[in-house]
Simulated assay, not measured.
Amino acid sequence: MEPLDPAVPGLLHGGRLEVTGRIVNASNATLICDIEGDGVRARCVYKPIRGERPLWDFPDGTLADREYASYLLAEAFAPDGEPIVPPTVLREGPFGPGMVQLWIDTDEEHELVDVRAPGEVPDGWLTVLRARDSLGEPALLVHADHPDLQRMAVLDVLLNNADRKAGHVLSSCDGRVYGVDHGICLHEEDKLRTVLWGWVGQRLPTELRATVRAVRHELDNGLCSKLGEHLTRRELRALSERVDGLLTRPRFPEPSGYGPAIPWPAF
């Protein structure tokens, strides 16, 4: 099912969930489900709140709300009508309330973030980090210079995404790029950790500056109230400050220096 299919919202909210598997390497309980309703069927991801692993720096039981709040912000950040984040809802499920998100089929032959030897970096790709592999050979963390990745990088700045791993960047079978796993976003303190640092210091393209202005408009016209059901006042204030900061200085930021700039593991 395509994310823009008009049946998706109703299906995610009201469809019957049947658990068919689990992503075992996820930090929190992440269940794969079939969802069906009114003759429509799709696959989705279900993350029950009771399966969230406690974190020292995020309040317990808030990750599902942060996933949904991230989707709401991604909607405001979608000038073409299709958010970078797949359709996401909060609802009851087989193991209690949690986040339900449409599954995205991926094209594994078109990865957009990778580790390559210095002589094997594709033309046009951007270098994020220079390191050495387990054998002591030089290795580079790189990503494509792709407009959808640029959009994701700017959205991550607004989300204050603390966990943009390479595995959270999905290249879909229809050629779109999606970001997933936004449970540790929207903290009031600066926690941006990402593999998408390739444009550091560059000026935001005109269309992305316009998109940030559109987000400011949405925040002033109802979005803050919606987000306020899932975030604290301090978190909302910090979000507003990040938006205004990008409008004042419309450049891709540098790492803050107050913690690791890249999540671990990076993939």
Rank of each mutant, 00 (worst) to 15 (best):
P3A: 09
A7K: 10
V8H: 01
V19R: 11
V19N: 10
T20I: 12
T20M: 08
G21C: 06
I23A: 11
N25A: 14
N25C: 14
A26V: 03
S27I: 02
I32C: 08
C33T: 09
C33G: 02
D34C: 04
I35K: 14
I35D: 02
E36A: 12
V40D: 04
V40I: 14
V40Q: 14
R41F: 13
R41V: 08
A42Y: 03
R43E: 08
R43H: 10
Y46I: 04
K47W: 08
P48G: 15
I49C: 06
G51V: 06
G51N: 12
R53T: 07
P54H: 11
L55Y: 14
D57P: 01
T62N: 04
L63H: 01
A64M: 08
S70A: 13
E75T: 05
F77L: 03
G81V: 04
G81Q: 12
P83K: 15
P86F: 13
L90C: 06
R91D: 15
E92P: 00
E92H: 07
P94V: 12
F95Q: 13
M99W: 09
V100F: 11
L102D: 04
D107Q: 03
V113P: 00
V113R: 06
V121R: 00
G124N: 10
L126S: 01
L129W: 14
R130T: 13
A131K: 01
L140Y: 12
L141N: 01
L141H: 05
V142D: 07
D148G: 03
R151S: 13
M152R: 08
L155P: 01
L159N: 03
A162D: 13
K165G: 11
V169R: 07
C173K: 06
D174R: 05
G175L: 12
G175T: 09
R176T: 10
V177I: 15
Y178N: 01
H182D: 10
C185N: 14
L186I: 14
E189I: 12
E189Q: 11
K191P: 00
K191V: 04
L192R: 09
W197K: 13
Q202A: 06
Q202F: 00
Q202R: 10
L204D: 00
E207M: 10
L208K: 03
L208N: 05
R209G: 09
T211I: 07
T211M: 12
R213Q: 11
A214S: 14
R216H: 09
E218C: 08
L219Q: 01
N221V: 13
G222M: 03
C224G: 07
S225C: 06
S225F: 05
K226D: 12
K226L: 08
L227T: 00
G228I: 09
G228K: 04
E229V: 00
H230R: 13
H230Y: 09
R234C: 11
E235L: 15
A238K: 07
L239Y: 07
R242N: 15
D244S: 11
R251P: 00
E254C: 15
E254W: 10
P260I: 10
I262A: 07
I262Y: 13
W264E: 08
